[in-house]
Amino acid sequence: MAQITVTINGKAFRMACDDGEEDRLMGLAKRFDGWITELRGAFGEIGDQRLTVMAGIMATDQLSELEKKIAGLEEDLSEARRQQVDALDNMSQNEQELARSVNTAAARIESLADSLTKSLRSGDAS
C-alpha cells in the first residue's frame, strides 16, 4: 500500500492507496480542493466543515447526473442493438425471398429455353 499526502482546503491529509493509484488519488484530491476554492470564492469564509460538506454535495450531484446520463446511454445502446437484430432478421428474410424469386425466375427461364429449343427442333423437322 502506498502512502501519499494530499492538500484539501489548505490542510495536508495523509492517505493510503493501492500501489500505482497515487497520481489518480492526487488528481481527485486536487479536483475536490478546486470545488472548495470555488465555493469559498462564491460564499466567502463560511467555515471549513460547511465548505467541505458543500463540495461533497457538489461531487455527489455531479455523480448523480453522470449516472443518469450513463443510464440513458445504456438504454440507447440497448435499443440500437435491438434495432440491429431486427435489421439483420429483416435482411435475412429479404435475402431468402430474393433467393426464392431468383430460383423461380431461373426455373421459368429454363422452361422457356426448353420450349424454345423444342420449337426450333420441331421447326427444323418440317
Rank of each mutant, 00 (worst) to 15 (best):
M1Q: 08
E97W: 07
E65A: 11
N9D: 10
R31Q: 13
S64C: 03
G27Q: 11
E79I: 11
A87F: 02
L98R: 12
Q96R: 06
R121P: 11
Q93E: 06
A71S: 13
K68G: 09
S119W: 08
I57S: 06
M54N: 01
R82M: 10
Q84V: 11
D89G: 11
F13G: 01
R108C: 09
A106D: 12
A99Q: 07
G44I: 04
A55F: 05
D19I: 06
S115N: 10
N90H: 13
T52F: 05
E75H: 15
S64H: 13
S92R: 15
L63E: 03
S78T: 13
R82Y: 01
A99I: 06
V6C: 02
A29C: 02
I109Y: 06
E38I: 02
L112F: 11
I57V: 14
R108H: 09
T104G: 04
S122A: 11
E22P: 01
G56W: 08
D18H: 07
E79T: 13
S64M: 07
L120W: 05
R24Y: 15
D19T: 12
G44W: 02
A113F: 09
G34C: 10
L116K: 14
K69V: 14
R81M: 10
F43L: 15
A16V: 14
E97N: 02
R31T: 10
S78I: 07
T104Y: 05
S119G: 04
S92Y: 03
D124K: 09
I109Q: 04
R40S: 08
I8V: 13
G123V: 15
L51N: 03
L120G: 09
A16D: 06
E97K: 01
R40D: 08
L98N: 06
S115F: 04
E38V: 13
D76C: 00
W35E: 09
L66G: 04
D89Q: 15
S64Y: 08
E65L: 07
D89E: 10
L73T: 05
T117A: 12
V85K: 14
G20M: 05
E22V: 03
R121W: 08
